[in-house]
Nucleic acid binder design. Structure first.
Length: 110
DNA sequence: GTAATGACCTTGG
DNA sequence: ACCAAGGCCATTA
């Protein structure tokens, strides 16, 4: 019953390589709905409700801040997962975010 | 059907 | 440079 937008977001997020992160705006822009950046975050709300599960922990805001870490059940779950991906987190913020940033538009180059 | 909310981003003061 | 407000689209109440 999920809208196509949700599915598209899940697809892109699932394509995020290990040890990489992206932003909601980037996904929204890739889908051609840069104005609907909020919907991307909203879609992540259902990320745990779809199959297979979507690595929403690899998705952060434009500042590289783990804004949705509170939605993982535990406020430290997202950071733990990111650290597992060799991604360093400093003050709820991704270190070298620009280097770890994975842009679907550039990588997938649709 | 109307109103409010949201894991955001952009622009104005 | 910093702080505040608006916009955008879908879901939920």
């Amino acid at each position: 019953m999920e809208s196509d937008f949700f599915d598209m977001v899940f697809q892109v997020v699932r394509l995020i390589p290990k040890g990489r992160v992206t932003s909601y705006g980037a996904i929204a822009a890739y889908l051609g709905a840069k104005s609907s950046s909020r919907l991307v975050g909203y879609a992540m709300n259902n990320a745990h409700a779809v199959k297979p599960k979507v690595p929403a922990h690899r998705v952060v805001n434009r500042n590289g801040v783990l804004t949705g870490k509170h939605h993982f059940g535990t406020p430290t779950r997202m950071q733990e997962l990111l650290e597992k991906e060799k991604i360093k987190i400093k003050n709820d913020q991704v270190v070298d975010f620009e280097k770890k940033f994975w842009d679907p538009m550039t990588e997938l180059a649709l």
